[in-house]
Design a protein around this nucleic acid. Structure first.
Lengths: 228, 228
DNA sequence: GCGCAGAAGTAGACATTGTCAACATTGACT
DNA sequence: AGTCAATGTTGACAATGTCTACTTCTGCGC
């Protein structure tokens, strides 16, 4: 059957955009099964290609997972930026970020775990650049909101303020991250109240931070690790 | 070779305590490889036993992983209770708990991820009882410290105070949990400063909580999910 | 137009893994 | 001694990640 299978609907030899298709399939499977333990072959099947085709686009399963994780980061970053776009109040923006972060995790735990669960957290190669970028843009949103006064007073994004801003971000981020994962793991719940919870936790955090921004130790970085 | 292999040093047919041996081997492999993707067969090899022997003690790989996770929880609970044992000041106890929690995670990320990364977070069966118990005893330590005045004022563990106490615990726990995982995933660092960081974050959290304890929404549970 | 290099996809093979079923060995209780 | 259940062993099977060799197409220079 070299060229005449049946009709014109037969799949062409070349897929067109297998890379995207595979990542998409992976996102689907991840959402459905909520497990990182799907097989490359399954994705290939879903994309309607042979079990080895993905290897033309990804070196490893690890590589594929990294791409999926990156896609997840981009999704999250977009969701957060969309949520803050039309909000003026820095406080509102911060709340929106928190909601997006927490709900994003609760709605797709497996993806979230893949993203943050450091499938390749080993320091041998570090996270792929896309992940770092998404994390950076996440951080940038926070910096904006905070410097604009989300903590109750303006905190311009200057060198003199870096430690303070980083301290605030550290508090905020780890608080939301922790809340998300506790919800995801059912150690706090019910997860339907995710946004209520994030709001109330944020509230108390802001009230607290308004009084005392932690002095984080020198040499601490917040966000993707510095180069090197 | 029914009974005379060489000398008396030959391994007896029955291992004696394979269950423990397998879990121990798993903990070892987990610490060494920092990956949850080891094989049952590898554990059997390490224990010097045939590849199927573990199935007499664990139904699945899942089951084995659950046992390992439970062991991790017990380890953590013990570490925390040891750390707080000889401390009078509730503030000190809280700090010790925070340190133990964060450092425990940083020192063995893979185990921590297994424990909290919900290998079996699906609501089909829930976490095994041992895990729930460990989480409970963790929570109990927090309740003690808080009711003893870790937040700057006594907060007796009465029904009237439950919501407030739960709110404080939620803040504390998610904060520490998030900090730990950000450290583990290298989104904050360096991890050598884990205890400094936990101390400074705790400090600001306490200062904040002293002012405002969040009003968590009604119906929210903190800790292992209520029965049902 | 055309032919060719290389990208994209396929087919087959291999070691490893989780798991099942059938069999062997052993200690404990009667 | 004799039986039984617990514990271990061996062998088999399908699925998976990944390697190598082969095929089919696409784009590019001529």
């Amino acid at each position: 059957m070299t060229k005449a299978a049946s009709t014109a609907d037969q799949r062409p030899y070349h897929h067109g955009d297998l890379h995207r298709a595979i990542v998409g399939a992976a996102l689907d499977v991840l959402s459905e099964s909520q497990s990182t333990e799907f097989s490359l072959r399954e994705l290939a099947r879903r994309a309607g290609v042979s079990h080895n085709a993905p290897y033309k686009h990804f070196a490893d399963k690890r590589d594929l997972l990294a791409a999926v994780s990156a896609a997840g980061f981009e999704l999250l970053a977009k969701k957060m930026s969309d949520a803050t776009q039309h909000l003026d109040s820095p406080r509102e923006r911060l709340a929106a970020i928190a909601r997006a972060y927490v709900c994003g995790g609760v709605n797709n735990p497996a993806l979230y775990r893949l993203m943050f669960g450091g499938y390749l957290a080993g320091q041998d190669n570090g996270r792929p650049a896309i992940e770092r970028n998404a994390a950076e843009s996440l951080k940038a949103l926070l910096v904006d909101a905070i410097s604009d006064g989300a903590l109750g007073r303006l905190l311009p994004n200057t060198v003199a303020n870096t430690r303070e801003i980083n301290g605030a971000i550290l508090i905020f981020w780890s608080q939301m991250h922790g809340l998300t994962l506790l919800l995801v793991d059912h150690l706090v719940g019910p997860s339907e109240k995710a946004d209520e919870l994030s709001e109330s936790v944020l509230q108390s955090m802001l009230d607290g931070l308004a009084n005392v921004i932690p002095a984080i130790p020198a040499g601490v970085w917040v966000g993707p690790p510095p180069a090197g």
